[in-house]
Structure formats: structure tokens, C-alpha cells
Design a protein around this nucleic acid. Structure first.
Lengths: 183, 183
DNA sequence: CCCGAATGAGACATCAACGTCTCATTCGGG
DNA sequence: CCCGAATGAGACGTTGATGTCTCATTCGGG
């Protein structure tokens, strides 16, 4: 009987990824519960979005952990990160745009995650694996942007789901041009 | 006295890029006109967004023309396109997300533009300049996504405006890894 | 200079979503 | 089995945005 809070959040994330302006009623229906019950668990839309943000931060944090971004070859670490982040891509896409849509305080949790991603790119630069003419800050933005773009492309059927992780990491790391690594 | 329709659209684009949910009243104020006058020129919010879409399509079409994407080295053509598209980046970012936010028919005009961008990437692949394991469709999505991400990053001061064109095209073409072109 | 057209400010009704509340129903532990 | 807790459906008032309308003011061409 008791509503599974996590299940509701995941349903909300799935719907909001597809339609960021979905109403509380639509979210409730998508989660298979009544609107009143939704309000019993989340004080309001803001609270729901904030909870979703917490979930996204936690999940992406786990992805960073699972990808062991501090270990081994930086490029491989980026590939692992993109792959681990794939299940959270939808939530990230929603939150990434949400932060642009509504002006308002950024959740402090993002700063920690941003720092870890930036550290990964910095490490890659220091090891000589990444070019230094693209700033870690921009590479971090691009990582988020490409993950979100990929999530939408899959959503709309423009790219196959099975390819998206490779498409994102390969583009981010190697770009569109044919290349050969330096010796 | 007569209101400059184009000026209103540009003001709306600037505001909506920063806050996609801005009300008609906010848009009117941003354009320096009264809300009633805004309604006299655009039947409603939908009409305004559609007009903005027309503007974006036209401007990006001009960017494609100016970049001469059918001529010369494909990589250089991409650089020219990104540079030419920079002034429209804000509108593109807004429309790109708008198309995700609200389900609804896509303006036919986008198909023509998409086709031209995809043709550019296909040409690059055929000439051996671009890798063939990233589909033109995905590269096109990535181009839009990175332009939008760049516009936001500049908006929020995370990347310097003067760098963004190079940041986008270099990442899109060369990726984050150090590389050397094939002989 | 003068009159018509366009504008700005604001009143007004409408509408959709929100948040709160009630009440009957249902689920599940004791 | 039974009672309490949780749920679903829906009514209700509120709020914010929308679209329409009026009216005084202002601009600019003739």
C-alpha cells in the first residue's frame, strides 16, 4: 500500500525528461498514484524537483564512484563515466535545462560533482592525454551537454539506445575528425 | 512609433534564452513595449514562439549560406558554420529545448536545415576527413547540443564569449584528446 | 498644424494548475 | 478478523498567466 517514494521519483524523472512542463496531475498519473497522494509525499512541485535534484546528484555521484575517475588512463575514465552515467542521463538532461530555465540558487551538491569532473579533465591534461586549449570547465559543460543531447536523441528515436554511450564518449574524446594518437 | 517587429523578436529571444518560461508581460517589458501592443503583433504566446522559430530557421539558414558548407575542406566548413551560427546560438538553444519541452509538430523548416548539416558531415566522411563510426545524424544533434550548451555557458559566465566559437568547433571536430592528423 | 493611427496602461473575464480538504475505500499488520 | 493507516477521487478556493477590451495619450504624415 505504502507508496514507493523512489518509484515515484523515477516515474517523474522519466516523464519530465520527455515533457519538462508536465503538471502535477500528469506526474501523478505517470507514477500510477493519485494527485493527493503525490502531494502527501512532496509538499509541492518545488519540493518534487528538489527531491529529483537530490536523486540526480546522488546517482551521478555513484556513477563517478563506479567509474573510478581517479584511476588509470584519463580517457578510459571518461568512457567509464559516460557509461556509468547513462542510466541517469534522463534526469541529468532535465536538471541541466531546469537550471537554465528557472533562475535560482544552484544546489551545493552540484559543485562537488562538477569539481570531480573537472578534476578528471585536469588530470588528463596534466598527464598529456588531453589537449590544454580546451578548459576543464568547458569540457565539463560539454560532458553534461552531450549526455543530455544524447538522452533526447534516444528519446526521440534519432539515435539507437545501444549506441549512445559510445557516441557521446567517442565524440567528447576524439571529435569528428579522423585522428591518430600521438606516439 | 510603429513597433519594430524584428526588434521585439530579438528581445524576446534574448529573454527566453535566459528564462524559457518568461510570461508575455515579462517579454513585453523586455522589448520595451506594452503587453497590449505585444498582443497586437503576435496573436498569443504560441504565435510568438512560432515567429521566433521562423526567425531562428531563417537566421540559421543564412549562417549555412554564409559558411558555404558545400565548399572546401569539411572541417573548415564546420568551423565556419559554428562561427556564423554564433549570433543565433541563443535562439537555437531556446528552440532546441522548446522542441523537447512541448510535444508538437516540428516545423518543416528544420528538416531542410538538418539535411544540410547532415550533408556536411556525410561529405566529410566521404572525403575521409571525418570518422565513419559516428553517424551524421548524431554529429548533427551534437552540433546543435554543443552550440546550445555553449550559449548557456556564456550566459552564465562559465566560458568567455570570445572563446566559445573555437571551444565548440574544436571539441566537435577534434575532441578532448591530443591528436595528430593522419598523413 | 491637425487628424488618424498606433501605443501604453490598466480593467476584466477566463482558464489551467496549484495546494488543501473531505470522505469513502482499501490494504495490511496485529 | 478487525481496526487503523494510507490511498484515490474529487470538490473547493487561490493564484498567475492569458487574451480581450476600453480609453487617454502620443506620434507622425499630410
Amino acid at each position: 500500500m505504502s507508496v514507493d517514494r523512489d518509484h515515484v521519483l523515477r516515474a517523474a524523472a522519466t516523464l519530465l525528461t520527455r515533457k519538462a512542463t508536465a503538471s502535477m496531475d500528469e506526474i501523478a498519473k505517470a507514477a500510477g498514484i493519485g494527485r493527493a497522494t503525490l502531494h502527501r509525499h512532496f509538499a509541492g512541485r518545488d519540493a518534487l524537483v528538489r527531491a529529483l535534484e537530490e536523486l540526480g546528484i546522488e546517482q551521478f555521484g555513484r556513477a563517478l564512484d563506479a567509474a573510478r575517475v581517479d584511476e588509470g588512463d584519463a580517457a578510459e575514465a571518461v568512457r567509464r563515466l559516460v557509461a556509468e552515467a547513462e542510466p541517469v542521463a534522463g534526469i541529468l538532461a532535465f536538471l541541466f535545462t531546469e537550471n537554465q530555465l528557472y533562475e535560482g540558487g544552484i544546489n551545493e551538491g552540484w559543485n562537488r560533482l562538477d569539481a570531480r569532473v573537472q578534476a578528471l579533465f585536469s588530470r588528463g591534461q596534466e598527464q598529456g592525454a588531453f589537449r590544454i586549449d580546451l578548459s576543464p570547465a568547458w569540457l565539463t559543460e560539454a560532458l553534461y551537454g552531450l549526455i543530455g543531447t544524447g538522452a533526447w536523441a534516444v528519446q526521440d528515436g534519432r539515435v539507437a539506445a545501444k549506441d549512445i554511450s559510445r557516441m557521446v564518449s567517442e565524440l567528447l574524446l576524439g571529435g569528428a575528425q579522423r585522428r591518430r594518437m600521438e606516439p
